[in-house]
């Protein structure tokens, strides 16, 4: 991936890429209109899936989101029993359920990621998504084309990331604090598909980055950038101290750093045996 990016850096390639990007933007714009007619994305799901999904929904989700997914009583407040799911789309369901955020264990300021404790199989998630999608179509689960990272431009991804994402998720993708105990989670070791879905659907505090704002190609670039960081693309000078920036440096220098020097000083000042 790195090599690819390195070779592509000629002015001609840039032009081709720009053209390609523009074409793709247009295509994607047409294909993934957020206000698409109900059923465009649901068309691929079978009636069986929807029925199975509805059963799962009634058993696991309806208590908060309502039996028709219309949302709980105070659907607008964060602490409400769940919001309406009509029109959130399959991508949203896949993101929330497959990262273990839903079903929520206990109400809190924010639904935490919980991949160690997934409640559903991939098939069940698909069924659940099909059901929710059938209620009113929203963003569909992204196409494999945008997740394979083939031909993705890491540098462009980094640029998009720093403008749109770094202020919350940190320039190293390790997350950051929001107001009142909410937080932007770390993006390390998150599935490509889930990163894409998060941008598309704007889960919880996160805003939506629809395809007119960040095109599918740009989303793929962002994912490629994050995967490069995850694969050690930033690791050169040693332990990154949790990528906390100057806070990590300070923690180190005031403990182990000066500690080593003081230990040496104590040894130097002590009478030998």
């Amino acid at each position: 991936m790195k090599k690819l990016a390195a070779r592509r850096r000629s002015p001609l390639a840039l032009m081709v890429l720009l053209l390609l990007g523009l074409t793709m933007t247009g295509t994607a714009y047409a294909a993934l209109q957020p206000k698409a007619d109900p059923g465009t994305s649901a068309a691929t799901s079978s009636v069986d899936d929807i029925a199975a999904g509805e059963a799962l929904f009634q058993a696991n989700c309806a208590s908060c989101h309502g039996s028709n997914a219309q949302g709980g009583v105070e659907a607008d407040s964060i602490e409400s029993p769940g919001p309406s799911l009509i029109g959130v789309g399959a991508a949203s369901v896949d993101f929330q359920v497959a990262t273990g955020r839903m079903p929520l264990n206990a109400p809190g300021v924010q639904a935490p990621e919980n991949r160690m404790n997934l409640k559903f199989t991939d098939e069940e998630i698909t069924q659940l998504a099909a059901y929710v999608d059938s209620l009113g179509a929203g963003p569909a689960v992204p196409d494999e084309q945008w997740l394979d990272l083939e031909g993705a431009d890491i540098a462009e991804g980094g640029r998009i990331f720093r403008t749109n994402c770094a202020m919350c998720h940190n320039s190293s993708g390790t997350g950051g604090a929001l107001t009142r105990g909410k937080y932007a989670p770390s993006l390390m070791n998150v599935d490509e598909q889930h990163i894409y879905e998060a941008m598309l659907t704007g889960p919880q505090s996160m805003p939506v980055f629809n395809d007119n704002n960040i095109t599918p190609q740009e989303k793929e670039d962002v994912i490629a950038f994050l995967k490069d960081v995850e694969d050690g693309g930033n690791a050169y000078g040693g332990n990154s101290m949790g990528s906390l920036g100057p806070a990590g440096d300070a923690a180190f220098v005031w403990t182990l750093g000066i500690g080593l020097l003081i230990a040496a000083a104590v040894w130097l000042g002590r009478k030998a045996a």
């Binding site: 403008t163 320039s171 950051g176 690791a235 050169y236």
Partner: peptide
Amino acid sequence: QINPVWVYGPYDPTQVTAG
């Protein structure tokens, strides 16, 4: 590692990093 400037990116007044 200390002050990995390549992680932060070049300065751009429209951008900022958490933390």
